[in-house]
């Protein structure tokens, strides 16, 4: 590589990083500012709390995906990916509704639902770690499998249910902040501590980014990847309660959330100095998308525009981060 390139590259790269990082935070602030000016009541505390609550389901799923991306590497095609998250949520919500309607007590119903989420995570982990299937295909397959199971369980209908837990989640408030918003923040805090501030999290990053290095340091790489799918499964289970509370039972069509979840997790990458998937970044991306949807609603813009915006965001983020990674690879 010529010296001119070597000299120019870090600068170009630094510039690219700067634009990506500052640009994304700037874009976030710009969107907020535009919506604040144009949309009525956008900045009222009630509306902001509302956005937090409405973002809980997507956000918690995206946290799960973030962990999988960290543990599997951020390569979109070959890296970590869990496409079954949304379907897993649908199944868990259906399981909880069925159990609750069948008269299981609260603890049993909650425990079995979370176990269902974990089992799906374990299935994904098994296919990826033991069978060595590419996560994209493995979780695509399990997504269909799980969606099918959900249909078998619900006969493709809504299973309404009601419990004290769901009432608390749907109606509860603390410090004038709805319970669902607290759920989002609590999961963010727990996973944030685990992923960003514990040795486990650091090792998970190493496993995802440079498995050979992790292996050379004596880590059991497969175990870490497997655990990231378990976390994702657990997140799907937790999100299922939020969803069941929001819709008063299980609903069909939870798979539609997949695109948003993937968009959020990859968008979260740009909110970090190192351009890696991370929990605070995912939280910010969740809120960005939440505010966007909310603003569009307040402005009476048709909601399919949100899908378009999500698609564009995914393309932008994936294109830019892979372009930067290519430069890094050339160094």
């Amino acid at each position: 590589m010529p010296w001119s390139e070597i000299l120019a590259q870090p600068l170009a790269r630094r510039l690219g990083l700067l634009v990506l990082r500052r640009g994304s935070s700037g874009a976030f602030l710009l969107i907020l500012a535009v919506l604040a000016v144009t949309a009525p009541n956008f900045l009222s505390p009630g509306n902001i709390a509302n956005v937090f609550a409405q973002s809980a389901i997507l956000g918690i799923l995206a946290f799960g995906l973030t962990c999988v991306v960290i543990g599997g590497g951020s390569n979109v095609v070959a890296g970590g990916l869990d496409l079954s998250l949304a379907a897993n949520l649908g199944l868990c919500a259906a399981v909880y509704s069925s159990l609750n309607n069948a008269g299981f007590d609260t603890v049993q119903a909650i425990g079995l639902t979370l176990l269902c989420g974990l089992a799906v995570g374990a299935l994904n982990g098994f296919t990826v770690v033991v069978l060595r299937l590419p996560p994209l295909l493995a979780t695509l397959a399990s997504m269909n499998l799980i969606a099918g199971l959900e249909l078998v369980l619900t006969q493709n209908s809504v299973l309404p249910t009601d419990s004290a837990l769901l009432d608390t989640l749907a109606m509860g408030e603390w410090l004038q902040v709805p319970a669902l918003a607290w759920m989002l923040l609590a999961v963010a805090l727990l996973l944030g501590l685990l992923i960003q501030h514990s040795p486990y999290g650091l090792r998970l990053y190493a496993v995802g980014e440079y498995p050979e290095a992790a292996r050379a340091a004596g880590l059991r790489v497969g175990l870490y990847v497997f655990s990231s799918y378990l976390i994702a499964g657990l997140c799907a289970g937790v999100a299922a309660f939020c969803s069941a509370a929001y819709f008063s039972g299980s609903t069909t069509g939870s798979g539609d959330m997949l695109l948003s979840v993937v968009a959020i997790a990859f968008l979260g990458v740009v909110f970090s100095r190192r351009l890696v998937a991370n929990i605070p970044g995912t939280l910010l991306a969740t809120l960005l998308l939440g505010f966007l949807i909310n603003g569009f609603q307040l402005l009476n813009i048709a909601s399919f525009w949100v899908n378009g915006v999500q698609g564009v965001l995914i393309l932008l983020v994936v294109a830019m981060s892979s372009a930067l990674r290519k430069e890094e690879g050339g160094l």
């Binding site: 990053y205 190493a206 440079y210 290095a213 992790a214």
Partner: peptide, 16 residues
């Protein structure tokens, strides 16, 4: 060089 690129010097040094 078996060190993850996105780690800081401190993280890489004390990794594991």
């Amino acid at each position: 060089r078996l060190l993850p690129g996105s780690f800081t010097v401190g993280e890489a040094l004390f990794f594991c």
